[in-house]
């Protein structure tokens, strides 16, 4: 069984919640990637989402856009990130998920990409500009390599489409809780709660909420309606400001909830 699936299943059976932080690979230099992952693991991250920088990230807000620009200026490439992961994968025990737009994969070569991330011990992939209509470009290869393709549903996705996507889903269902790009928040509490409950009701696999989750209260609130949360822009910002204690504090509510359970 895939490491990510196994980990999330374990949490689910014990009634525990997942916390998945996102970091931009190469922001602060490729050499800090390993230590940042290890730090997040120490703080209690369930799995880690590693962003690959792209020149035109249309699903991302200003925080992740800027991190991507800094990373590209540092000379980060998909190939360098894969090599780096391969080097220290054994030191990390939590699952690793790559988040990349489709074009860097396409330029790398789709088959070679799947083969190389498999060798580097990557457990899942999130491709924000690859809806289910186009996923056959890569999904069968990921399936064969036992790497989970994480599908997304959003507040603009109608119920029957959520059902279709959830049925295809692997690992967890990434549930976007804003109408917008990463790092924004525009929804009302009750609307989001209802939406998350509906997705949770439909989905045969764990449901994680993401986009625009930036405070302890939100981490607490959102994870109470589903199986856990993904925090991106806020973590990226805190790393950029070297504010490590704040990162630890963000993860804390989940730790407390998990202890009570």
């Amino acid at each position: 069984m895939n490491r990510l699936e196994k980990k999330l299943n374990e949490l689910k059976i014990s009634g525990l919640k997942a916390f998945v932080p996102y970091i931009m690979a190469g922001d602060g230099g490729i050499e800090v990637l390993n230590e940042r992952i290890l730090l997040l693991e120490k703080f209690g991250a369930t799995a880690i989402e590693i962003g690959i920088p792209f020149s035109d990230p249309v699903a991302d807000g200003p925080t992740i856009q800027q991190a991507g620009i800094r990373s590209l200026e540092n000379g980060t490439t998909l190939s360098k990130v894969i090599k780096e992961l391969e080097k220290f994968r054994d030191e990390i025990s939590i699952p690793i998920i790559l988040m990349t737009y489709m074009n860097p994969i396409f330029a790398y070569g789709i088959e070679k990409f799947v083969q190389d991330i498999n060798n580097a011990g990557v457990d899942g992939c999130i491709i924000p500009d690859l809806p289910i209509e186009e996923e056959e470009l890569i999904s069968h290869l990921l399936d064969t390599a036992d790497i989970e393709l994480i599908r997304l549903v959003t507040m603009a996705t109608p119920r029957e489409r959520i059902e279709r996507i959830a049925k295809l889903g692997k690992g967890f269902l990434y549930t976007v809780t804003v109408k917008g790009i990463t790092g924004t928040r525009n929804g009302y509490g009750a609307e989001i709660a209802d939406f998350l409950k509906m997705v949770k009701d439909i989905s045969p696999i764990p449901v994680l909420a993401g986009f625009g989750i930036s405070t302890r209260d939100q981490v607490d609130q959102f994870s109470s309606y589903c199986d856990g949360v993904i925090v991106g822009s806020k973590i990226v910002e805190l790393f950029a400001n070297n504010d490590l204690s704040q990162i630890e504090e963000l993860i804390t509510p989940i730790q407390i909830m998990n202890k009570i359970m």
Binding site: V58, D129, P131, R151, T154, T157, R161
Partner: peptide
């Protein structure tokens, strides 16, 4: 061609 866009836009 195709539709390589975020899921948020698929319905539209």
């Amino acid at each position: 061609g195709g539709r390589y866009i975020p899921e948020t836009l698929m319905q539209a």
